[in-house]
Design a protein around this nucleic acid. Structure first.
Lengths: 225, 225
DNA sequence: ACCTGAACACCGTTCAAGT
DNA sequence: ACCTGAACACCGTTCAAGT
């Protein structure tokens, strides 16, 4: 089969960073983090594993690019989407939903806090905080806290998702953890015992939003004093 | 050299889960996560790599045990240490300092949110929240939010620590990131530009505590309404 | 300039064989 | 019961050789 030639003189099926990242995302979504190997990636792209290194530095750079591709598509400009507080809630939910759809993104964001995807989120949240009238130093602290919270919950959620992707498994998994928690000595772990009952039924997305609101309430309280 | 025999009939230098975990912590502290291999561990314990599997299931179980060993020693009972709010700040700082001393713990906590070390932290924080008079469901949400924040910031901090352990390197590293941030288009990244100046000088521990206080203020605000 | 694929230097884990 | 260490089935990455 003759290779198609495009106007730019490259073969239509030539490798490129974009095609590699796209294929990587596909593998990650379909079969999880452990399935992404350079051999699997090369096979899917019908090329040699060494070829990938011509377009991308290493596996870490590939994961950074993949996470950024997902987050960039999701964290967009929020100007004119209501109050800053509404906008922050929407940004946070966007990231949450992105990780719900691509659990490996949660893991990847935690790996390098300074990667483009994180800078994107930080900027997004920060711009909205600027709109609230709080001191500059408080803005840095607030943005950092919000992003940390976002990242922390996303990571936990992603960890569970990676292990038990499907809905029914998830509920069973949480029930198993809850019953494991109640094995502990109730005298030593009273809180864990109390919460175990709520664990299998709780809605992660709702709980995530409750945390964001707690933060926003805290920022508000700081403003009025 | 004859093997010493203890009263329990085991050789004094016999392998045990405790000795393995101890050696693992030592390797992780000294040379970082990538240095912990079963071969290195076996060499340090003067045994075969297969022997370790008699005492511990796999590498994941080893990391879980190592993280729990560190956290258990640090997150202790906080009753009578002042107000619940004071106690929560102290617990959070204890975890922060533990991760400062053992960066790999931050990475490990994020890997499995249901591991013993995390349950420990969750219980610790939760007990203090119970002391505040907030609704049961709000307790779950608040504890989850606090622990998520703790985990998120710890993970980020650990990621930087793993890459640049020493103080001077750290400052240089943050300066490099800040100057990389200012390369971005100021029109697209106004907040990141504003914050870049503060990045190299900011105190992580202080910022961490500021986030905790934001949370506590938010919880307080919810109580009074 | 871009791609191939064998080779290198590792991993975690298993398991027959020893004591 | 506990330990040994070779062997297995992988990795990411490199690099001489091709086009």
């Amino acid at each position: 089969m003759a290779a198609k030639t495009q106007r730019n003189g490259r073969r239509a099926d030539a490798l490129s960073k974009e095609r590699i990242v796209e294929a990587a995302i596909d593998i990650l979504d379909r079969d999880g983090e452990s399935a992404l190997t350079f051999r699997a990636l090369a096979a899917r792209l019908s090329t040699g594993s060494g070829a990938i290194y011509w377009h991308i530095a290493d596996k870490n750079a590939l994961l950074v690019a993949a996470a950024d591709a997902v987050i960039s598509g999701v964290v967009t400009d929020r100007d004119g989407y209501g109050s800053p507080r509404e906008a922050i809630r929407m940004i946070a939910l966007s990231v949450f939903d992105a990780i719900d759809a691509h659990p490996w993104v949660g893991t990847q964001l935690a790996r390098e806090p300074w990667q483009p995807a994180m800078v994107h989120i930080f900027e997004s949240v920060g711009t909205q905080l600027q709109a609230l009238s709080i001191a500059e130093e408080a803005q840095f602290n607030s943005a950092s806290a919000l992003v940390s919270y976002l990242l922390g919950l996303a990571t936990q959620y992603a960890a569970v998702m990676q292990l038990v992707p499907r809905e029914t498994d998830r509920s069973a998994f949480l029930t198993a953890i809850a019953s494991q928690w109640t094995q502990h000595d109730p005298a030593k772990y009273p809180f864990v015992h109390q919460i175990a009952a709520q664990l299998p039924e709780h809605d992660d997305r709702e709980q995530f939003l409750a945390g964001i609101d707690l933060f926003l309430a805290g920022i508000d309280a700081g403003r009025s004093t």
